[in-house]
Amino acid sequence: MSTATLAEVAETYRHPESLGNFLRDRNPITLLVALVSLAVVAAAVPGLITPFAVCAVFVLLAFAGGVGPAYTATYLKLWAVVGFILFLLRALLLDGEHVYFTFGNLQVTAEGVYEGLRFAAVVMAICGAVTLFFALVTMRRLMLALEMRGVSPRASYVLLASFQSMTDLGATAKVVLDAQKARGIETEGGLITRAKAFFPVLAPVFLSAMTATEERAIALDARAFNSPAAHSHLVQLPRTATWEWLAAGLFAAVATACVMGRFLGWL
């Protein structure tokens, strides 16, 4: 990495930025359309098979995108903490005709189990689409794609700067918290003690983050942030082929058909 010369680094910017993976090199917007369409299909088509199949497709896509293991781990955790509880609460609490068994006030019915599975799978399909999208696409590439489609660089600034501010402010807050500890201010112990530590740590950190916006505004203005000229872009995304837009359109059309089918009673 450090061996790359300036000329080599400069050269990389002369070409579209490829991540070396078919799926991850797609235009973030077409990818988003495709994934959202899949989630919509999962929600629109009744029954258990579709939502579960969509969830499985997401895992397969993650592997195709080269983020399989990490994504599977995240997704399973999401299933465990959200999906499972959604299922369990419904399975235990919803009334129905076909009672499997009862204990105390609780009654596990076939209807409850079905509703639980269905609801959990639909919610998880929606969650899966979102998490997969952000596993495949970085915020930077997404904003770049949006800017190319006419989104304001200011909108881009707000989002990208938010992530950086979260990192910076979080780091500062932890430094201050540790400094407080070192100065003997209690950050452990009873609830009141811990609650009392919250104010002196955070109020000054948040305040100075707010006052620093003044200098930030001036510094960015010096970088022509307020320039009325049309902006250009250093980093280029791979060209979006026509088939890619068509494919995205197809996904969207199928999703729309499923929704219409649901409401018009075809499905």
Binding site: R14, A222, R223, S227, A229, S232, L234, Q236
Partner: peptide, 15 residues
């Protein structure tokens, strides 16, 4: 390069 992007400088010149 950010300032040059904001000024709309063409990529080759920017680099």
């Amino acid at each position: 390069a950010l300032g040059l992007e904001n000024l709309g400088t063409p990529r080759a010149e920017m680099i």
